[in-house]
C-alpha cells in the first residue's frame, strides 16, 4: 500500500531523515517508533505529501507522492502531530468542512460526519467550539477528521500524546478497531503503545532506520537474552571472574561502597540459568552475595540500546547533534515507563 524508498529529507543545515526505506502492506498497522527528534514527523510529512523528499520516492496506493500529490492525499487520512484545528469553528461544522474538502459528495457529507462522530465518541461535544475543547477531545476530533472521508490509509502522528491514561486506552482501542479494515501507520515514542497496537514495528533513530519486524520477532530476537544483576561484597573483587559465566558474557560493574560492587551480567541467547552460575562463582571465591536478581531484556531495553548505540556511533561521526527544530522537550515525559522486570 505504501512503499517508501530511500527517502532523505534535508533542511538548511541538517538532515532530518536519511535513506529510510520501508513498506506498509494493505490492512496492517505499522508502528513507527523512535525517540523525540528522530525524524518520525518529517517522515510522515513526506509520506502525506506535505513535504517533498530531497531524495527517494514514496508511492502510496500506486501513486507517486511528488507527481500525483492530490491522488495520494485523497487516499490518506492524516492526524498531524499537534492536531491543528481551526479554533473558531464548531466540531460538527469543522468535520463537515473537512469532509467536503476531501471530496465527500454533498449529499453524503452529513452521514460521513455522523459516522466519524460516532466512531470517535465525540457526540457530546459536536456543537462546541473547537478552541474550548480539552486536549483529549481535540485529539479525538483530529482523529474524526482523519476518518471522515473513510480513507483506506490512516497516518497518525503521536495519536495518544497529551492524553490521560483512560483516554490513551480508548484511543488505542479505537485505532485497533480502525485498523481492521484500513492500513494504519502510527508514530510513537512510547514502546508499549506500539507493542500493544501494531502488527509490525519500524524503529528509527536520528533519521535512520535501525530496526524492523513484528513485536514478536523483535522480542524473540532478544528473549533468549537473559542475565543477572548482583551486589557483591569482597575485598578482592574482580569482575573478570564472571566473564566465563554461561560460556562467555558481558560484565559491567561499578563500585558502590568500599568493598561493595554492583555487577550487571548480560549473557547470550542460549544462556540458561545465569544467576545460578553467578552464585557458584561467588561461593567459589568466598565473596558475600548481598543481592541476586534474574533479569530479562525487554523490548524497551533493546529499543534504548539500539538507539543509544546509534547515538554513540553518530556522535563519533559528527559532533553536531541534528535534532528536529520543532520538538519540544516536554514530550520527554513518558506516560508509561513500561518496565518488564520479572
Amino acid at each position: 500500500m505504501i512503499q517508501v524508498q530511500h527517502i532523505t529529507k534535508a533542511f538548511a543545515g541538517h538532515t532530518a531523515v536519511s535513506d529510510v526505506s520501508f513498506d506498509v502492506e494493505a490492512g496492517e498497522i505499522l508502528g513507527f517508533l523512535g525517540p523525540n527528534g528522530a525524524g518520525k514527523t518529517t517522515t510522515m510529512r513526506v509520506v502525506t505529501g506535505f513535504l517533498p523528499p530531497t531524495h527517494g520516492t514514496v508511492v502510496v496506493g500506486g501513486y507517486d507522492v511528488v507527481t500525483a500529490p492530490l491522488a495520494v492525499k485523497s487516499l490518506i487520512g492524516y492526524l498531524p502531530e499537534h492536531v491543528p484545528l481551526h479554533p473558531e469553528m464548531r466540531v460538527s461544522e469543522y468535520l463537515s468542512f473537512r469532509a467536503a474538502l476531501k471530496g465527500v459528495a454533498r449529499a453524503k457529507v452529513g452521514r460521513a460526519v455522523e459516522r466519524a462522530i460516532e466512531e470517535c465518541i465525540i457526540g457530546d461535544v459536536r456543537g462546541r467550539v473547537i478552541g474550548q475543547l480539552s486536549k483529549g477531545y481535540r485529539q479525538r476530533v483530529g482523529l474524526a477528521d482523519a476518518l471522515v472521508s473513510d480513507p483506506p490509509i490512516l497516518i497518525l502522528d503521536e495519536p495518544t500524546i497529551g492524553l490521560d491514561p483512560t483516554q490513551i486506552r480508548e484511543v488505542r482501542k479505537l485505532i485497533k478497531e480502525l485498523g481492521r479494515k484500513r492500513t494504519v501507520v502510527l508514530s510513537s515514542h512510547i514502546l508499549p503503545e506500539v507493542e500493544a497496537v501494531c502488527d509490525r514495528v519500524v524503529i528509527i533513530s536520528r533519521g535512520r532506520l535501525v530496526g524492523e519486524g513484528t513485536p514478536e520477532e523483535l522480542k524473540r530476537q532478544l528473549e533468549g537474552k537473559v542475565g543477572a544483576q548482583a551486589e557483591v561484597r569482597a575485598a578482592d573483587f574482580d569482575p573478570a571472574a564472571f566473564e566465563s559465566v554461561a560460556g562467555g558474557c558481558s560484565v559491567e560493574s561499578e563500585a558502590l561502597e568500599d568493598d561493595v560492587h554492583r555487577v550487571v551480567i548480560t549473557a547470550g541467547e542460549e544462556a540458561g540459568a545465569v544467576e545460578e552460575e553467578v552464585f557458584l562463582v561467588c561461593v567459589e571465591r568466598g565473596w558475600v552475595l548481598r543481592e541476586l536478581k534474574k533479569t530479562h531484556v525487554s523490548l524497551e531495553d533493546i529499543f534504548v540500546e539500539i538507539v543509544a548505540r546509534e547515538d554513540h556511533a553518530d556522535r563519533e561521526a559528527d559532533e553536531e547533534p541534528d535534532e528536529e527544530p520543532d520538538k519540544e522537550a516536554d514530550k520527554e515525559a513518558d506516560e508509561e515507563p513500561g518496565e518488564e522486570e520479572s
Binding site: G49, F50, K73, S74, I76, Y78, P84, L85, L101, D145
Partner: peptide, 9 residues
C-alpha cells in the same frame, strides 16, 4: 492548520 489543509486534496 496549513498542514491539515495541504494534506487534504
Amino acid at each position: 492548520t496549513i498542514e491539515a489543509v495541504l494534506t487534504a486534496p
